[in-house]
């Protein structure tokens, strides 16, 4: 375990990258996914169709291909994210980070959209009718009555989507972000004698992080469950 402890600083830094990718992509994919879901169930036919096509295209494409698109096809058409350069202490959020984060957001949003849509479909029609009957406009019906209940129904699949996202951040380790996976490969290469410990340590940290996520989801589920 010495190798892991000796490199605790590097490992911590790597997991900060991992977690920052997760938080950035998690929050933005929830927002973008919710907009997509609203478009999918909304009254505007063009938006409904566009959102459906988006989900069909992105959800059926492997994550690696989506990110590689932003990493390698993007620069060819002038999309370099060169404007992104955020420095916080030892953390550098650069153009590569941005490309990877955008890839994760684009990909995860399609799953968030579908999770929310299934949640919306699970809300009985009568709820919307009752909301309309007391005079709420479309926005009020969605925000006050449909979405809160849809979130409740969508929570288990949303939690799965977010857990998958946390693990999917490792794809960025081969595409320019020095996150946990890249760090692990560096350590296993430099310390061949301690490979098993290094693997176990990284796996364990991921297990703990996912457990924390699952616990949060579980608590929310409990809190939102009604009688």
């Amino acid at each position: 375990m010495n190798v892991v402890l000796d490199n605790a600083g590097d490992i911590a830094l790597a997991f900060i990258y991992t977690l920052s990718l997760f938080v950035v992509a998690g929050v933005l994919s929830l927002i973008f996914g919710a907009l997509l879901a609203a478009a999918r169930v909304g009254p505007v036919a063009v938006l409904r169709k566009a959102a459906a096509v988006y989900v069909m295209l992105i959800r059926n494409t492997p994550l690696l291909i989506v990110i590689i698109f932003f990493r390698f096809a993007g620069p060819k058409i002038g999309l370099t994210f060169g404007f992104v350069d955020i420095r916080v202490a030892d953390i550098r959020l650069n153009n590569l980070y941005a490309a990877c984060a955008v890839g994760l957001i684009v990909y995860t949003s399609s799953f968030v959209c579908e999770a929310l849509r299934s949640g919306i479909n699970a809300v009985p029609l009568g709820q919307a009718e009752a909301a309309r009957a007391i005079g709420l406009p479309f926005g009020g019906v969605m925000s006050q009555v449909i979405m809160p209940q849809a979130m409740r129904h969508a929570l288990p699949p949303l939690a799965s989507v977010q857990i998958a996202l946390l693990k999917n951040t490792t794809v960025c380790g081969a595409l320019g972000v020095f996150e946990a996976f890249a760090r692990m490969r560096g350590l296993t290469n430099d310390f061949a004698s301690a490979r098993t410990e290094i693997f176990l340590a990284f796996a364990l940290i991921f297990v703990v992080l996912v457990e924390v996520l699952s616990f949060v989801a579980y608590r929310l589920e409990r809190r939102w469950r009604i009688a």
């Binding site: 550098r92 650069n94 153009n95 081969a174 320019g176 490969r185 560096g186 290469n189």
Partner: peptide, 23 residues
């Protein structure tokens, strides 16, 4: 930002030299 193959010693060396390693 300096690129090298993920897991390589080279990547560690550029980080040590103060550059940002891009695996």
């Amino acid at each position: 930002t300096v690129c090298s193959v993920s897991g390589s010693t080279s990547l560690q060396n550029v980080e040590d030299a103060g550059a940002v390693g891009a695996p």
